[in-house]
Amino acid sequence: MTGAVIAGIGEIPATRRPAPGIDTPGLLVAAARAAVADAGLSHRDVDGIGVSSFLLAPDQAIDLAWQMGLTTTWQAQDILSLALLQQAVRAVEAGDASVVVLVAGDRMTGSGFTAMMEQGYSTIWRDHLARLPVGGPNALFALLTQAHMERYGLTRESYGRLALSQRLWAARNPRALYRAPLSIYEYLAAPRVADPLCIYDCPPLAAGATAVVVADRDRLRGRKRSRRRIAVRAVAASYNHDHQDGDGLTTGISALAPRLWKQSGVAVEDVDHFEIYDDYPVMVLAQLQDLGLFDDPGSFIASRSPDAPWQGINTSGGLLSGGQCGAGGTMKGLVEAVRQLRGARGAGQLADARLSVVTNYGLVPYRYGAAAVGAVLERTR
């Protein structure tokens, strides 16, 4: 087992209408400071920082470290926020740093998103896709959802069942953006964004940030232990999965899952809790299938009660009910996993959660995500 543990978490809850003066650097700094305090540490203890943000530019990790008053020996930036966890664990194990704060988020609004997709996301989007009247990735994943529906004989209600489950979890999460009840009738009658996707299939843009502190277990010895520390048992990543030549229904999770289970020494059936990146319901089902939780999504959905949240799956409410704060989406799932393993989730606490899996999927070049990361976390004694 690795000597790296998650010692602290911080979250600035998402909001759709950030107040004047709230900006991306301020959100990131606030979340990072909250995580350091939660770990029982001070900024003087921190010697590493990792940052994930679309809108921090032209500032970089070094600028954020300066704003926090940090003196660091290790820094990293990655839009795929869960990849930072992999990098930080390895940095701690190698002795490059002993206390690393990882922070992700953005002040993401409609106008900010449009500007990012047209200019700041990638040259592919800027030079080719931005010229098409598709309004971002919604149309691309609508096509992917259509293909998924056809392959597995699913209906719009199938995906609605997942969205409703996450709303039920969000109702138990005071930090979730949307907590009001949602019925399948409301879902099916909701305005379409790109057929077959409706507004409840697309995560709402929001402003917010989340952070975790990854530290060397030995570095924490002798310090007052006010919070349970969570071991990072394994992290695996897969980039440029099938180079956009496939049909998109198999994600990069399929390539990393065997390594994830081998390195962690656990099997998918051992996992108590999954936080799956949920930019669209179809991608939750695709990633769970790639992890090996089931072979047929239709049978899996049918086995779940339509009137209760799906046990152990996206218990924070995910992005669909919690809001997508730019590059901060997956860090939100990581923070939720730590809360569950600590036994500190409150009304939405799972009974005796010991193992959690968190995934990150995305970075769309042309058709669908080109990268995926998965992590196994374990409750420590």
Rank of each mutant, 00 (worst) to 15 (best):
F274D: 04
Q244C: 03
P306A: 14
G252D: 06
G333P: 13
N138L: 07
A31Y: 04
Q75M: 15
N360R: 02
G333K: 03
P309L: 07
V134F: 08
I199E: 09
Q263M: 13
G160Y: 00
G10W: 12
A94T: 15
D195W: 06
F274H: 03
A91F: 04
T359A: 01
R167F: 10
K262A: 15
P309E: 04
R161E: 14
S356R: 03
A88I: 07
Y152Q: 06
D59P: 05
A237T: 12
D218G: 07
R379I: 12
F141E: 01
T250A: 02
R175K: 12
D278L: 06
V284F: 14
A370Y: 01
Q289Y: 04
M68Y: 07
R217A: 14
G298H: 08
E11W: 03
V29D: 00
L168H: 08
D78G: 02
G348I: 00
L85M: 10
G326Y: 04
D270Q: 08
D45P: 03
A139D: 11
T73F: 02
A180V: 07
M108F: 04
A302R: 14
L102N: 00
S316N: 06
K332I: 09
V212D: 07
F300L: 00
P306M: 14
R227G: 04
L168A: 12
S183M: 07
Q67T: 09
A34I: 02
H241V: 01
K224F: 10
A57G: 13
H43Y: 05
R345I: 02
V36K: 01
R16S: 11
D247P: 00
A130W: 14
A351R: 15
V358E: 00
R17S: 11
W310Q: 10
T24Y: 08
